[in-house]
Write a protein that binds this DNA or RNA. Structure first.
Lengths: 238, 238
DNA sequence: GAGTGGTCTAGACCACGGT
DNA sequence: CCGTGGTCTAGACCACTCA
């Protein structure tokens, strides 16, 4: 069962992409669109809310709904709120992995707090280098809760862990907390990211939750400053 | 006229802060809360949507609504979606400013595209060092559209520009696009941020929009890697 | 005043999780 | 099966902008 407002959001997104609704141009009024899609106005508005939060539309009360101009933000930078794997973020590129370490262990006290675990509930610990178009791209240091992300194998890690979580385990990701910071390179960074002692590093520390609120991943991902950046769209509803 | 769902969100936030609804605990069902606040269930749900997006609550269909546990994310890091000034972000600290340059100019071609200006519509260009507790904290390189942020003076810049925009000009901020990246320090960074040649720098590039969708600010803010980081809460609705 | 989007309702029905 | 939250409706009324 698909949700009407998601379908409509999808269709409107398509029309903007294809230029049927052009940059800066006004869209048909909500009532007309509601009639076209044969839904109530509230449902149509909910679809528009999604696009407004994504930054594609903005609305002005008493005036109308417009397509936002893009410019800066369609560059080679990644949405900070992207939770799917690199394979999805870089569909045109060749993404490979090098497994630097893969083991199973009991969580430290700090990790127990973060992932809401007892000391006897094991975690996988994976250090993995992602290689894009033959160049070292990002170094991931990740912990997964074993009870949730069951039966990880080297084969899965070599491909896409998120694909496995979604398709095989049929788990739904519900969201994440992220912290973005800069850092000096560690020895490990220098070794694997093709960095020198003075190359700044961009780090994303994150806890990822299932749709039911259970945390299942804690990770730190580091990349060279000149390889990656993150974008955030922040629309305040009014 | 205040909005009911904002008032209710505020009240629920207060109850979570005060521990009336405790971490991990289930809240009263939506229908009961809707009756308590004397609103429809849709309105109550909208209030909860806000708190869920903030990451305070999560809901599980068929089960109930729970208070999210916090841990990691209440540290000394700043919400990436905070658009108000430093004065608000650091209420306990002494925030001062040093004006490095302040002039008015015509926008470059690139800036015209970003801020949707003609070549004859002037912008203020401000380079300002923010000093927190006597330490250099962040170096801001900002352009404001003169037609919108009228009559800027050195006095205003020395204090809080956002306070001026909100209180005196009575403009409402509607959102922003941000890009976070790391960089090597520039000469200006080294000079003003108490950085050496090898100190990584964290940069936030942003375009800020009024509530009506008009862009009015383009800026790059840089800080030393060890002075600042940004957090993002990302909840996928389901 | 005419036309836009924003809020709110009262109620129906659906999807999901646990018993 | 029951109880939870999620979706959707049809319509009312409000707030804002612009002619």
């Amino acid at each position: 069962m698909s949700k009407k407002y998601e379908d409509i959001a999808e269709e409107l997104r398509r029309r903007i992409d294809q230029g049927i609704y052009q940059e800066g141009q006004m869209l048909p009024q909500q009532i007309a669109l509601a009639e076209e899609f044969d839904v109530s106005r509230m449902t149509l508005k909910k679809a528009m809310d999604i696009l407004a939060m994504e930054g594609l539309l903005f609305r002005k009360r008493g005036v109308g709904t417009f397509v936002h101009k893009s410019t800066l933000w369609n560059t080679s930078s990644y949405k900070a709120t992207e939770y799917r794997g690199l394979t999805v973020q870089l569909p045109d590129k060749k993404v490979e992995s090098e497994i630097i370490s893969f083991d199973i262990q009991f969580p430290s006290e700090e990790l127990q707090k973060i992932l809401l675990l007892d000391s006897n509930e094991a975690v996988y610990h994976i250090i993995r280098l992602r290689i894009v178009d033959k160049k070292p791209y990002i170094l991931e240091d990740t912990y997964y809760v074993v009870d949730i992300v069951k039966n990880l194998t080297e084969e899965i890690i070599y491909e896409s862990i998120y694909e496995y979580i979604r398709s095989d385990l049929e788990l739904k990701v519900g969201g994440a907390y992220r912290k973005i910071s800069a850092d000096t390179p560690s020895d490990v960074d220098i070794k694997h990211l093709d960095a020198s002692e003075n190359t700044p590093v961009l780090e994303v520390e994150q806890v990822v939750y299932l749709a039911n609120g259970t945390p299942f991943e804690y990770s730190k991902s580091r990349s060279r400053f000149d390889m990656r950046s993150y974008t955030i769209t922040d629309i305040i509803p009014h």
